[in-house]
Structure formats: structure tokens, C-alpha cells
Simulated assay, not measured.
Amino acid sequence: MTEAADTPGQALLDAESIDKALAAIPSTGLPAGVAAAVDQARQELEAVLGWRAPFEQWRSENGTAAVGAGERQWPPYAELVTALDNARPALELASMALEAFLNSSLGNHSPRGWVTLNSQVIHQGPHVTLRRDDVIQPDGQEGAYEYIEVPATVRVLAINAAGEVALVEDHFYLLPRRPVLHLPGGAVEGSEGVELAAARELEQETGWRAEKLRVIGRIDPLPGAAHTTTHLLLATDLTPGQIQRDATEEWMTVRWVPAAEAVRLARSGGIREAGSLAAILLAEPQLLLDEMP
């Protein structure tokens, strides 16, 4: 819709123009997903264009009072606006799909990158959701993309008054042959904030509370396969708390190591978990500076 579509008449005129443009696109040769996006957009526009006859009748009955800004007095105007808002996502999807297809036909890469045509949940578990999306790839071709959704996580770089870093060692199901050394952390639960999640995980796993917490970075640990973010936090001014580990963390142990040793472990392969590596290496200058006499 145009910026000037602030009256029922203009909004309906814009909707008619868009519908005519979409109707003029030949379906022959269009990829199925693109054609479906266009059809969906036109279906959504039907709900908008259905208001044309009632509007014209009202305007003819009210004469000059229903001209220009007076159109806004049309009683069902709010319902027309709702129909427009409902149609907007389908119109934007059709626009992106057509743009990607056109760029592909011309041998250009789509400036929008990937375009999602629809998304389906394949599996919904307590911790992981598997999705399959029908997409238009950056090369303009249609395809399917499978990925998992998991809650955001935190990794906490906790430093005590002696300049030591808290590491935990635990056994992971997918890495059964060796214990994994990493920073404390875990999932952000429900609507809790990142700092709250970090404080909770730190105390539960190590038995220490942090008076000061701040985010030092974020990573996308597996962007090709998982939709998630790991937040990295620095925790200082530690005070004793209470360990409350999950049942799966029964064998977890805590190790306090000098900051330089934490950096060495990160650089030598002793620490391989992505969030822990990123947090330690991001904070390396400060960690080593704090250790200097």
C-alpha cells in the first residue's frame, strides 16, 4: 500500500492495483512455491476488495460529506484496516518470492538471500523442535531446509577474588568417551532474562553467586543447523551460594584454575565447547592483565 493510502478509497484503489499486477503474472514457468505465494496473496486481497461495494454505496449515499478526508468517517473503516493488516504478510512474501525468482532468471543473486515460503514442525520435543521450511534459495531455486530450534543458552565466565576462573567438568550423552570441561551455563528458561539465567546456572552448578554480571558477547554456535544463540557473560564479586544441580549433572565437578591456565586450556584444546572458548578468548586480554603483578 502507498504512503497516501490513509483513506478507504485510496486503500481500496491500491489493493485493486496490486491484485491486477499479481493477476497479470503468468503462472506458467513459475516455481510451485512462488506460484503458491502469489495465489495466497490474491486470496488475502479478496477480503480487502470485498469492501469495495459497501464503500461505494456508502459514499453515494453521503455525497460530498464522503469525499477526501470525509471518507474516514465510513463506519467499517477499522475493519478494512484490519483486512489490510492481515493481507500484508502474504503480500510481502509474494513480493520477496517474485524478486528472488526474477533475480535468478536474470542470473543475479537475490539481495534478500533466503525466502521462507512456509514452515512446518516435524517434531516437537521437550527441549528441541525440528522444522522443515520450504524456501527459495539465494540462487532463486526452490528447496527444503531442515533445522532445529532450541532455547537460547548462557555461558558464564566467573572470576573469584584470587583471579581464578570457575570451570566445570561433566559427562555429555553425545560425548560418552570423555568428560567435557567448560564454563558453567545452560538454557535460558521461559521468559527469564539472560542475566537471571546466568546467575541461576552459576549458582546451581558451582555454588557461587555473582554480585556483578555483564554480557561480553554472543555467538551463533551452529548457524547452518540450529536456530539458537549463546550469550556470554562475565561474573565477578562472587559470594557463597548453594549447589542445586540437575539429575543429569550428578557427576559434575568444579575446578578453579588461574586465568592464564584457562586461556591455555582454551588455546590447546583442553576446552572445546564453543561458548566457553568464545568467552575465554574474548576476555583473554583482561584475564591476563588481571594476572600481571
Rank of each mutant, 00 (worst) to 15 (best):
M1P: 03
E3G: 04
A4D: 15
D6M: 09
P8E: 07
P8V: 08
G9H: 13
L13H: 12
L13N: 13
S17A: 06
A23I: 04
S27Q: 11
G29P: 02
A35G: 13
A36S: 10
V38F: 08
Q40A: 14
Q43K: 01
Q43G: 15
E46D: 11
A47K: 07
V48W: 05
L49K: 03
G50H: 01
R52V: 13
A53T: 03
P54A: 14
P54T: 01
F55Y: 15
E56M: 14
Q57M: 11
S60I: 09
E61S: 10
N62V: 01
G63E: 05
A66D: 01
V67W: 08
V67F: 10
V67R: 13
G70C: 04
G70Q: 02
Q73P: 00
Q73T: 03
P75Q: 06
L80T: 02
T82K: 13
L91V: 05
F101S: 13
S105F: 03
L106T: 10
S110L: 12
V121T: 15
V128S: 15
R132S: 09
Q137M: 15
G140W: 00
E146K: 03
Y147D: 14
E149T: 15
V150I: 15
P151V: 01
T153F: 01
V154T: 02
L157H: 00
I159W: 07
A162G: 06
V168S: 08
H171I: 09
H171Q: 10
F172T: 00
L175W: 00
P176T: 06
R178Y: 11
P179E: 08
V188E: 14
G190N: 10
S191R: 14
E192L: 03
E195L: 12
L196H: 15
E201D: 07
E205N: 07
G207R: 00
G207Q: 00
R214A: 08
R214W: 14
V215D: 06
I216D: 07
I219H: 04
L222T: 05
L222S: 15
L222R: 06
L222M: 08
H227F: 06
T230G: 01
L232I: 03
L233V: 07
L234C: 12
A235S: 00
T236E: 15
T239C: 04
T248A: 14
T253D: 08
V254E: 00
R255E: 12
A259H: 04
A259S: 07
A262Q: 05
V263G: 00
R264P: 02
G269N: 06
A274C: 10
G275L: 12
G275E: 12
S276C: 02
L287S: 05
L289T: 04
D290A: 11
M292T: 02
P293R: 14
P293V: 15
